[in-house]
């Protein structure tokens, strides 16, 4: 990682801890808060300020995104394809996450960056309440595609208002967690409507293909079962015929023996 980024992340951690200490001095934990936080020792009190961080910036010459902990950063390529530019940290799993209050917080920073010619057309940042509502990444990507479509079709103000109305509904129907969304997009994003619609159509087509394959598999099992039934019925018919033939031969045999 470039030294300048290490300096930046170090300054963020130091600044955060300083702000935490100032806040703690002026707002000591209440008895109720202490009962919930229950720090194991005096050095763990900072963890009551546990906090994840996700940020992105773009200048005329470069772009940068970085993260500590959970939440997801989703960006759009020039052709509208969504992707996650910041590498994932496997220590963030289910309800566990790294935090800028961790003692090794500096080692928890993940980042991506590049020259302006490589900048995504849009970068969206969402807290874990957002991605927890969608489960599979494709569903999360689709939400941000919807957001980008909104900027393209309805404009910035209307889409931000729509987002403000939407998040409480999404929280209620989804993760029931707090939610924050931020983003950067450029003029190219406003002309992406055909590509974004194409991505959504492709997604639905993939689902149709998967469901069709499942139906075909079920039919295969049913047809196989029918054939099995038919085979069994044919075997019984054969058995019945053979028994009849044997009985007839026995009858003839008895006639000969008795004559």
């Amino acid at each position: 990682m470039p030294a300048v980024l290490q300096q930046l992340f170090g300054a963020i951690v130091v600044g955060w801890r300083k702000a935490v200490m100032e806040h703690a001095d002026h707002h000591p934990l209440t008895e109720t808060e202490q009962a919930i936080a229950s720090p194991q020792n005096e050095h763990e009190w900072e963890k009551t300020y546990g906090c994840t961080l996700i940020a992105a910036l773009r200048t005329p010459t470069f772009w940068l995104a970085f993260q500590v902990g959970d939440g997801k950063c989703v960006a759009l390529q020039a052709d509208g394809t969504p992707f996650e530019p910041i590498p994932w940290d496997d220590r963030c799993f289910l309800n566990k996450t790294t935090s800028i209050c961790d003692t090794d917080a500096l080692s928890c920073f993940r980042c991506c960056y590049g020259g302006i010619d490589t900048a995504p057309v849009a970068i969206f940042l969402g807290s874990d309440g957002i991605d927890d509502s969608f489960g599979e990444e494709e569903n999360l990507y689709n939400f941000y595609i919807q957001l980008a479509k909104g900027f393209s079709k309805d404009g910035h103000e209307a889409t931000v208002s729509d987002l403000e109305r939407t998040l409480p509904i999404l929280s209620l129907r989804g993760s029931q967690d707090d939610m924050s969304v931020a983003g950067i997009y450029d003029a190219r994003c406003l002309n992406l409507m055909p590509q974004l619609l194409k991505w959504q159509v492709n997604r639905i087509e993939s689902k149709i293909t998967a469901v069709s394959a499942k139906i075909a598999q079920i039919w295969h099992i049913i047809v196989k079962g029918l054939f099995n039934t038919t085979d069994r019925e044919m075997a019984y018919i054969d058995l019945s015929r053979l028994v009849k033939e044997k009985n007839e031969l026995k009858r003839r045999q008895n006639i000969i023996i008795n004559s």
Binding site: F134, N139, N142, F143, Q146, L147, T159, L163, T166, Q200
Partner: peptide, 8 residues
């Protein structure tokens, strides 16, 4: 934003 294409 939460039309029929969005699954939750």
């Amino acid at each position: 934003l939460l039309d029929e294409t969005v699954e939750i």
